[in-house]
């Protein structure tokens, strides 16, 4: 699905990612954990194609294509989805209109016809249920006046509608209460299959109780310093990040 080799990236001349190596196959769920400032969000931004970041070294192959060569919108059209940590508001643009535009842009890219209105509506209805999103929210402006939890659920809802190949969830659990967390996790679990993959970026182990990862990676100072299975996350939860910091401070 995606292969990241020796990825270095900097923002305003400051190096944040210092050689990331990661291989994710279809059907897998990877968790990336790490203390604040370790480069978790930078990694998701770089993969999604945000322009503020400069890739200085390394390569990323996404389904056989050079990801870093692609414009942000083409990465999305190729099936890469980012659930934002801080979803933005777009006043006056209804959620539904936004999604329809997105779907049709992606279909257009793939040489498909625009989605018939009827199919679109039933798709929306079906996916709405999945994340228990209030029907009213789909007609409101994108994220405008949504609570923190509603915004995150809206991200998962969009993901469900767009059915990406690779979804990156950037701290989707932050600011969620336990009920909302379960809803988000249930959504992800329902969408999971052998053709897609998920990257769950999180600070806490909590979300991983509900979305069980196949692999856990610990990011520190812009590098993956440790990889393992879900036990690693529990270990981390028990010991805290200080141990990691102590252990790897000298490495960088």
């Amino acid at each position: 699905m995606i292969t990241i080799k020796n990825l270095h990236a900097s923002v305003e001349g400051k190096e944040i990612l210092r050689g990331i190596n990661l291989e994710i196959k279809a059907g897998e769920v990877h968790a990336i954990m790490g203390p604040n400032g370790s480069g978790k969000s930078t990694l998701s931004s770089v993969l999604a194609g945000r322009e503020d970041y400069e890739v200085t070294e390394g390569e990323v192959t996404f389904n056989g294509k050079d990801l870093l060569e692609m414009a942000a919108e083409d990465r999305a059209r190729e099936g890469l989805f980012l659930a934002f940590q801080y979803p933005v508001e777009i006043p006056g643009v209804s959620n539904i209109n936004f999604l329809k535009t997105a779907i049709n842009e992606i279909r257009h890219y793939k040489g498909q016809e625009a989605i018939p209105a009827k199919d679109f509506l039933s798709l929306v209805k079906e996916k709405q249920k999945l994340v228990e999103l209030d029907g009213k929210l789909t007609n409101r402006s994108v994220n405008e006046g949504f609570s923190g939890g509603e915004k995150k659920r809206n991200e998962i809802f969009q993901m469900a509608v767009l059915e990406p190949k690779l979804a990156i969830l950037d701290e989707t659990d932050s600011g969620l209460d336990i009920d909302a967390l379960k809803i988000v996790a249930n959504g992800v679990n329902a969408l999971k299959n052998e053709h897609n993959a998920f990257v769950v970026i999180t600070h806490y182990q909590r979300l991983l109780d509900y979305i069980v990862p196949d692999f856990v990676h610990i990011l520190y100072n812009g590098k993956i310093v440790k990889s393992g299975t879900k036990e690693l996350a529990m270990e981390l939860e028990a010991k805290g990040y200080d141990e990691i910091k102590k252990q790897f401070e000298t490495v960088t």
Partner: peptide
Amino acid sequence: FYCKQRGIDMEKAIALIVNGY
């Protein structure tokens, strides 16, 4: 960027945002 990440190119994104405004 949010629009682009959903597959909407710059021109369409601007149109969408301006019309919303």
